[in-house]
């Protein structure tokens, strides 16, 4: 029962994040969800994951959200539904019922073989090397994403328009000269 307040709080924060009118408020509610989930992870004994979730999920991602909202403006969004709300609710309920059918009753082992001798670091760096490589690739993709976030297309547009003007100017002069020649011939 020690997880009950954390669970209720995280679900409530998630609802607030989805229903928030302003984007900045939604990002802050999402940070609240991340903090409560990291607290749950800490209570479950996954200390490393809790710290990473707290620093990355609640820290870095929130900073990125606030930065992006500052760049594009915190416009108020309508909570008008893209699909009919009744259809969305019915589909969500159907998915949740299917998940409940898969999950319950819980397949809990009587005597789970807990791997006490291996630590998280050993398991991650020796048994899950492919995951580490995948994470390196994902981080590179994220760096490219940040470059896209910081990229300003305006100077390129100005440069390309200036280049077009330079390209068209001689062409115009040539056409004017051709027209003069045609007039002289006439």
């Amino acid at each position: 029962m020690e997880f009950l307040p954390l669970l209720i709080g995280s679900v409530a924060f998630a609802v607030f994040a989805v229903r928030a009118v302003r984007l900045l408020h939604a990002a802050l509610w999402l940070a609240g969800v991340s903090i409560l989930i990291s607290l749950m992870l800490y209570r479950l004994g996954a200390w490393e994951i809790a710290i990473i979730e707290l620093s990355v999920g609640a820290g870095l991602v929130t900073v990125l959200f606030v930065f992006a909202i500052a760049v594009i403006g915190d416009e108020a969004v309508s909570v008008r539904s893209l699909t009919p709300k009744s259809l969305a609710a019915a589909l969500t309920a159907a998915v949740l019922i299917l998940l409940c059918l898969f999950l319950f009753p819980l397949p809990v082992e009587e005597n789970p073989t807990v791997q006490v001798e291996t630590t998280f670091a050993v398991s991650f760096w020796q048994d899950r090397v492919l995951d580490a490589l995948l994470q390196v690739m994902l981080i590179f993709a994220g760096v490219l994403g940040v470059m896209g976030l910081l990229d300003d297309p305006k100077p390129r547009v100005a440069a390309s328009s200036a280049a077009q003007a330079e390209n068209t100017a001689p062409h115009d002069e040539e056409s004017i000269a051709d027209s003069h020649l045609e007039e002289e011939r006439v």
Binding site: L41, A46, E48, I52, D127
Partner: peptide
Amino acid sequence: IQLGQSLAL
């Protein structure tokens, strides 16, 4: 436990 935490990371 370690496998679950690795996948979570």
